[in-house]
Design a protein around this nucleic acid. Structure first.
Lengths: 185, 185
DNA sequence: ACCTGAACACCGTTCAAGT
DNA sequence: ACCTGAACACCGTTCAAGT
């Protein structure tokens, strides 16, 4: 039963869900795959590379979930909800994303790729990336709080997290004003 | 030259700035303080406790920096800028905060404490915490991207990060609508 | 091509013992 | 009260060697 990259990422998510990010070591991952730790290095460059691969899966899954939106505001709302939902389906995945920083492939064409759906809906490339960055930041930040147990207990004790996130996202997306104050040249 | 908690936190920030979060180990920290690693445990419970102490310093510094604002929107804008600025003054500090999750003291009175300045400006306690959570989330998220070198290079190549953050924050704070859709009871 | 065994240079944390 | 020495149970990563 040979290893492969996707299977390693699958097993890593399973291990993450069971043990949390502290317990996600290459040695334990190898044990779960019935193999010795160095074997993993045949498929991934290092632990950071594994984290990047896992992070990429989280965000591309969210992107896929919001195809076919009628306008760029709807798209950004769906994307924000999708990103947060993706983080909340795997224990500590927001922490993992924060430590990995994504950027899975070469920087040249990835800019076009992430801007494309919003440019198709009428936004400039710069606004597309800027707004998307703010939406991911907000979603990541909330997910981070929701995945830190003492913080989660503290927050759920006095508010509805779903509503707070929704309120913040809605306020921001509604407030985006393309083309206003077109910085520098 | 006896140790003390604040001195340990100072040294930890200095070490963080020099080596990054990967290099921030208790053994190296001890060496910098001219002491053996276990000595640190007389002052802090464990490494997570050190991270929490460091995180608390970052956010309370930002809070202090925005006293005397005339209304709650101005306060939230100042706080968002202050939080991001605080993160950007220490290498990898957003990552550190994401891994630590703050919550330094007991949960009972800290709720009042963080809500107080906004309640004084007319917000309900629930809105105060909800909005503040969204503002911190957005600021933390952007700082995280800005402190991940490949991501930073990628983003600065096609946008002005200061402007993007400012646009997102401004849109969100302007869009907050207290009292609208008062969920459940 | 794919994996193991053994090793290197680290970790956080504990605990008896020193002063 | 405050710190050291020594140890435990881990890490990520490298690399020769096996198949």
């Amino acid at each position: 039963m040979k290893l492969n990259k996707e299977g390693i990422v699958d097993a890593a998510f399973a291990l993450l869900d069971e043990e949390g990010i502290e317990g996600l070591s290459l040695r334990r991952l190898a044990a779960r795959l019935g193999v010795q730790a160095p074997a993993i290095y045949w498929y991934i460059p290092n632990k950071a590379g594994l984290f990047r691969r896992m992070s990429a899966r989280l965000t591309t899954g969210a992107r896929a979930s919001c195809a076919g939106q009628p306008d760029w505001r709807s798209w950004l709302m769906a994307y924000g909800r999708g990103v947060r939902a993706a983080f909340l389906t795997h224990r500590d995945s927001a922490k993992l994303y924060a430590n990995a920083g994504s950027i899975p492939e070469d920087p040249g064409e990835i800019g076009d790729l992430i801007a494309a759906p919003l440019v198709a809906l009428g936004l400039s490339r710069e606004d597309a990336i800027s707004y998307q960055g703010s939406v991911i930041s907000l979603s990541l930040g909330w997910a981070l709080f929701e995945q830190t147990p003492p913080m989660r207990d503290f927050l759920t004790g006095m508010m509805d997290m779903d509503k707070s996130f929704e309120d913040g996202l809605e306020a921001m997306v509604r407030g985006f004003a393309p083309g206003s104050a077109p910085h520098a040249s």
